[in-house]
Structure formats: C-alpha cells, structure tokens
Design a protein around this nucleic acid. Sequence first.
DNA 1: TTTCTAACA
DNA 2: TGTTAGCA
Length: 135
Amino acid sequence: MKYAEIWHFFRIGIVMKLTDLTARQIRYYEQHELIIPARTGGNQRLYSFNDVERLLEIKDLIEKGVNIAGIKQVLLPVDKDSEDATILNEQTEVKRRELTDSQLHKMLKQQLLGGGKRPNQVSLIQGELSRFFRK
DNA sequence: TTTCTAACA
DNA sequence: TGTTAGCA
C-alpha cells in the first residue's frame, strides 16, 4: 500500500462468508503460501481485498480439480515482503480500517451499484459477491 | 465473541 | 478437510 491510503481489512469470519470457504481451508492455503494475510499484534489474520480475490481464484481452481502444487504454478507467487504480508504495527494502525459485516455490506453495495470510483480489483469478485447479499 | 495453533474417537 | 481442545 502507499502513503496515506486507507486500507480495508477483513477478519477470517467475514472472508469465510465472502468466499464460502471454511476457516480451515483458508488457513490451509496460507500454510502453502497461496496467500499471506497480514497479522494484528494479537496474531489475528487480516485479509485485504487482494487476498479475498486470490482466495476466490484458488477456490475456482480447487473446484476444477487442481491441487496445491498446480495452483502454485498458475497463480503468481506472493512477495513475502509485500505490505499485505507485513505485520501491522502501531504506526500503520492509523491507515487500517477493519470492516464489520454491515460496513462491508454497505461498501460492496455501492460498488455493485454505482460502478464506483475504483473499477479495479472487483472484476473477478463481483459475480461471487452476490452471495454475500443473500446471507 | 472470535480467532489461533495443533492434533486426531 | 472436519472438528475439537485450550489459549489469547
């Protein structure tokens, strides 16, 4: 992430609803370095939108019968030094915005409706995200 | 209340 | 992968 940007993060509970994956699966993929979520000081995982999108790609590949080794060859390796993999400290805290269920819901609703000001990363997610509004 | 790690009737 | 125990 850059300078004064505000970054949104999700706890594993929200990511489970977003992806329809179990916590076990989400952590398992992390063990195999398919994703590397950030961590809070309390060791809790914090997932970015990018992580969620990657999980949806992983899920899609798993459903197609691809194993972990295969997925590693398809998806671009993650940099362990990227911001997402950085353990957030007190200083980066100001830029972190952990979303609650309702906040996320409102935010996604805006994106799915008005087209939004940032038509970037939600491409793959959009179809899958409709699920979030049924639950 | 939720998430985390480790381990398996 | 599911599920549970015992912590933080």
